[in-house]
Write a protein that binds this DNA or RNA. Structure first.
Lengths: 86, 86
DNA sequence: GGGAATATTCCC
DNA sequence: GGGAATATTCCC
């Protein structure tokens, strides 16, 4: 839902190819967007959940906050059903 | 902390003898007080935590929402250290 | 009232 | 990035 709401795009959006999640403004994302969907405003807790559900960081570059999951693609939403808690 | 803040007394306070926790106004307590201390506003979730920490309802009367714990007494705060998660 | 799933936090 | 403790939810 976050990714399909265009108002969130400055903070979190699909990567170029629709195969990744790009947190473009981590600080703004944490303070403004996370609490609209979760009961906290901590980036670390959000990323902990990404990892629990099998997402992984796409690069080791600490300045780029981007995650991917085999079954999470913008144009194949049906795949999302296969995403499971570890 | 809730019980020692006099502003909360209309909603939650010590029982007469200081040996029980009285939720005097459950609905108001849930909506106004719980979210000041926790990340939710559900009475059931608050009571779930009371039970996890060993508190028990003092009466089966559903109109009286009062809980007790051997180590939770107003005038013996040092006892609280013995309260443990089950 | 409590077991269990999931969320959030804490810590390594 | 993930194990584990605790919080919150869900369900019986």
């Amino acid at each position: 839902r976050m990714l399909f709401d265009a108002r969130n795009a400055p903070y979190i959006r699909w990567g170029e190819d629709g195969h990744t999640v790009l947190i473009a403004n981590p600080h703004g994302f944490a303070t403004k967007i996370i609490p609209q969907y979760f009961k906290h405003s901590n980036l670390a807790s959000f990323i902990r959940q990404l990892n629990v559900y099998g997402f992984h960081k796409t690069t080791q570059d600490p300045d780029i906050c981007e995650f991917a999951h085999t079954n999470f693609k913008r144009d194949e939403p049906a795949l999302m059903q296969n995403i499971r808690r570890k």
